[in-house]
Amino acid sequence: MKSWNRLAGAALAAAFLSLPAAAQEDAGAEDSPGAYVFHAAGCFGCHTAKDGEALAGGRALETPFGIFYSPNITPDAEHGIGDWSLEDFRRAMREGVSPEGETYYPSFPYDNFTRMSDADIAALYGYLMAQPASANAPPEHDLSFTFDMRSLLVVWRWLYFEPGPRPDDGLDPQLARGRYLADALTHCGACHTPRTALGGPDDDLYLAGSADGAEGDKVPNITPDKATGIGDWSEGDLLFLLKAGMMPDGDVVSGSMAEVVQESTRHYSDEDIAALIAWLRHIPAIDNKP
């Protein structure tokens, strides 16, 4: 027993000692920690236009507030984020502010990404910087009159934006991880939580579905409410949804959720699938039919 412990300790130490070098070398590899964060956070979908170069931006996001065009996040110095430092990137993710000090619209879900750990932000930065650069220059946002004012963002931020990772709130580690996946990385609430008239999440209806999600789709209630949510789904049903996109009736998800499953949740580790399922079963059941 003792020798096993010692061996395990040595192996573990070796693993940690070699980690920085390995991370640096393979930051862009598909099995790197950065790739894992990249998939879980679903960066690809919004930052890649149809038939466009990967991560080069320009995908239109039609919202009640106007049309947002995602920026280029490849390492191109002029049109992408190639000249950003890790601190610039951390500030964008954590505070929603560009290196030039400009505040982002919350179409970039930094109210979710602000909860990401420093380690995950750094890993993601490493991964993005190792991707091929593209000189694509996406169009400017095309917003309706009222919202075409960054000054309104001050109000929005004051009302809705709480920067930084959350304390664990006494949650057991699996639930805390599930909440982290749902809120900080995969940002389920960006679509599944309805928004107020000012575009902030309506926290009283956390994950209870939205009548006008991104791209005009109705988004279902995924709280454990039996009548209007997914309270009667088994854990196996949830597993199949997150891994294969299949719903209990054999139908397979469409539109944005097909993208989420294909690009994010199917890449989750088994532990993370279990954690997200645990979290979705733990949250309050809300009776809400969008």
């Binding site: 996109g245 299949m246 469409s254 539109g255 097909a258």
Partner: peptide, 15 residues
């Protein structure tokens, strides 16, 4: 589920 059903549903099907 993902490449077969979902690949097509993603773009071509309105639920």
């Amino acid at each position: 589920g993902n490449d077969g059903c979902g690949g097509c549903h993603k773009t071509f099907r309105e639920k």
